[in-house]
Structures are given as structure tokens and as C-alpha cells.
Write a protein that binds this DNA or RNA. Sequence first.
DNA 1: GTCTATAAGGAGATAGAC
DNA 2: GTCTATCTCCTTATAGAC
Lengths: 205, 205
Amino acid sequence: MARMSSVDRRGEIVQAALRVISEQGVQGATTRAIVAEAGMPLASFHYAFASRDEMMEELIAHVVETQSIAAFEAIRFGADIRSTIRDGLQAFFDTIVADTAEEQVLFELMLFAMRTPGLESLPQRQWAKYRDAARQVLEAAAESAGIEWSVPIETVARMLITITDGLTLAWLADRDLAAAASVMDLAADSLYALTTPQPIKDAIT
Amino acid sequence: MARMSSVDRRGEIVQAALRVISEQGVQGATTRAIVAEAGMPLASFHYAFASRDEMMEELIAHVVETQSIAAFEAIRFGADIRSTIRDGLQAFFDTIVADTAEEQVLFELMLFAMRTPGLESLPQRQWAKYRDAARQVLEAAAESAGIEWSVPIETVARMLITITDGLTLAWLADRDLAAAASVMDLAADSLYALTTPQPIKDAIT
DNA sequence: GTCTATAAGGAGATAGAC
DNA sequence: GTCTATCTCCTTATAGAC
């Protein structure tokens, strides 16, 4: 492994750190563990980064920057809006189940950021990105099914993120697939209740 | 401070550790920081506990044992079930806002437990206690308002915990009171939709 | 029993050889 | 530029004086 650019080396260290965190948690991500994972001598770490703090800052910024809600990309739209919502929740949840370790890392990093001077605002940005992704998928679902949301879509997006966060936490805690399914059933009904057939041109009476 | 029983000293250390964790996170809860907070010499720590690991184990077990959802105790029941639900959510959320640091500690401890051999099952027990508390408050609300839940109450309880967890996480991330209120409005409607007037003796048609 | 003093090891960071 | 060897500090844990 000949010489590599400083940028490449920083990226390689960050990726190695993410793998270490995934297996051992934030606590276990010592400089020694990281360079061992990356297969480089200890001094290379401080050649690329001034300090471990600086590396963690770049790592979290990288996660916030690149991490979208991959789950939402697995959603397939159909004509039946209620089924689309339910299937969409399932697609989200299946991704969480498949990438449980990664999801746990996200929570650990967000809590770490909250405790770290200079990184306190990153969880806020992260959740804003979540809501943005939720809003986009809700817009796409509405357009696909020919319905409208009866409350501001930002509010529906917040509700959706509330539900997905709650589902994820419960999954991390008790790994109960059937229980998650029953919650998703209720959640799909609740979100479906927020839809109206098409434009506003269908009044009662 | 004269001599105290071993049990008292263990409790005092655990309480001091919780205060340290509240201010500095789990990482900052070193034996030195804890005994400094408790105002005792370092050796007292290992006189009471064989190791820091043992203390953390007792601390988390203590939290799981004693921590109920204090928020649910602030709920006042009224005749209007929808308002009762909405007010109940607000009472929960107000408690979260008032005790944000403590709530953050709970998440940190649960993630810590998941990474600690021997403590992996504690989050599961913790969430089971959450659901139990939710079930009790849902039963009380139904009885008070003279309604029934149209789906199994365990499922409603899971839905409620999903929502409160999601609300709590979002609050920790972005501290947006108004946004939480809008989510609680939707959540109250969703839970209200799961109620039926009284016994099952009111059929349509 | 209680505390001072210290051991033993792991952490981040760096000096200096190559 | 890169890596070995080391420095310094902080951690858990304990030995041994009182």
C-alpha cells in the first residue's frame, strides 16, 4: 500500500473508525483500534488528523452528510394508498432489521454529538434531513395515488419520522418482528386517515 | 460523615454516578469523577464494588427497576376521551422537557447496556415496563371515559410507546416545542380513532 | 474499616530515525 | 513522507499504613 493522498487517508481512517464503532461502540473507537482496523501504523492517524476529536468531528459530519434514509428508497408505489403506506413502512422496517448494527451506531453517534462541544447542532440537522426525506416520500406517494394530505405535509412528515424513530428504538430494544408489524398496521391506518381523495373539490353535503 | 453500611455506600455511589453521567455522559463516569461527586476517597469505591463494571451493572439494574414513566402519573382524566388523550400526551411531553437531561441519560444507558456483556437483555425489560405503564394508563383512560379500545390494548400500548419514543427523540434532537405539539395533535386523533363508545352493543345498521 | 500512596496498563499524542 | 519508539497523562485497581 504505497502512499496515498491526505484526503484518501482521512477517508480510509473514517471508514475504519465506522467499522470499529459498529462492532465495539463509540467507546471502543480508540486511535489504536482504528489504525489496526485500517492496517496502518499509529502515527499515520495523527499525520492525517490533528486529534481524535477532529476525526470524530469529520466522521459525524460525514455521516450526517451522506446518510439518507435508505429505507425510503426501497418503497414501491401502488394505486391503493393505504397499502402503499403499509408497504412503505414495511420496506423501511426491513431495512432497519437488515442494518440493525448500523442503525444503532447512528443513535450512538447522535448522543455522542450532543455531548461534544461544537457538535451539539448536528443531531438537529440530522433530524431535519430525516423530515425532508419523509416529506419527499409522502409527496411522491400522494402524487402516485392521486390523493392529498389533509394537514400540512411537514406535519405529516414529522408524524412519520416520529413513528419510524419509535419503531426503530423498540426494535433495538426487543427485536420483536410481530409487534412491529402490529404497530405498522395501526400507523398505516393513522396516516391513511390523513389523506383525502384528490383536490379539495369533494365537499360533504 | 461517619461509617455507613455497605448497602448505603453502594447506593450513594450509584446516585453520584447518575449525577456524573447526567452532566458528562457515560464516558465521563470514571471512578475518580464518581467518588469526587460523592465526596469520598477513591478506595471507598472498590471497597463497595469489586469493579466499575459491577457498579454500572447495579446502576442500570437500579434504573430499570425504579424508573417508571413518571410522565404518565401527571395525567388527569376527563370525560372527553379525545381531550384526555391529547392532555395526557402533553403531560408526558412536559415531563420530558422538564427532565431532558435525565431522559438523555436513559438513552445513553440503554445503548451502553446493549454493548455490555451480561446487560444486553435489560433494554428489552425496560421497554416491557414502558409498555406495561402505557397499558395501565390506557386502561384507566378507557374506564374513566367509558370507552373501549377497538384493537388489543397491548397493541395500542405499543403504538403509544412508539409515539412517545419518537417524540422524545425528536425533542432531544431539535428542541422544537411547536413541532411536538403538532405531532401530538395528530397522535391524539389517531389514538382516538381506536376507541369505541362503550360495550360492543352499538352496531351499525 | 478507612484512606494514602502506588502499581499496572491503556489512552492520545509526538520526537526523531529512516 | 512514513513509521518505530516513547512520552505523558489518566484510568482501574490494590497494597499496606493507620
